[in-house]
């Protein structure tokens, strides 16, 4: 970590902020679209998504900043984010 180049650190920051945002956006959408299938009202589900999404964002940022294998971490986050972003609208459509 302390021996990293400026470029590598900027990369971490970019993944943390942008990748983290994409992950959060996906998660919030998933919660909002998914929980109505278990009977929660959609206004409640959407609000719950926002409440839980923010802490998730923080965890992602801390994880990326401190990861021993930053590339693998970045990959996991991006894949998870894209999956959720693609899946959420389909879940909402079915509700």
């Amino acid at each position: 970590m302390s021996g990293e180049t400026t470029l590598a650190r900027s990369g971490r920051l970019a993944v943390a902020l942008i990748g983290g945002y994409a992950f959060t956006a996906g998660l919030v959408a998933m919660i909002g679209a998914g929980l109505p299938h278990w009977g929660m009202e959609r206004v409640e589900a959407a609000t719950l998504g926002a409440i839980l999404g923010l802490p998730a964002y923080l965890v992602i940022i801390i994880w990326v900043a401190s990861s021993v294998r930053p590339l693998r971490t970045a990959l996991v986050i991006v894949v998870a984010a894209l999956t959720m972003i693609l899946l959420a609208p389909m879940l909402a459509g079915g509700a």
């Binding site: 959060t24 956006a25 996906g26 998660l27 919030v28 959408a29 909002g32 679209a33 109505p36 959609r42 589900a45 959407a46 998504g49 926002a50 409440i51 999404g53 923010l54 959420a88 609208p89 909402a92 509700a95």
Partner: peptide, 15 residues
Amino acid sequence: LILATTYLPWSMGVP
């Protein structure tokens, strides 16, 4: 959280 719909407009709108 107060501005959640401003910061996460797409996600909040999905449902």
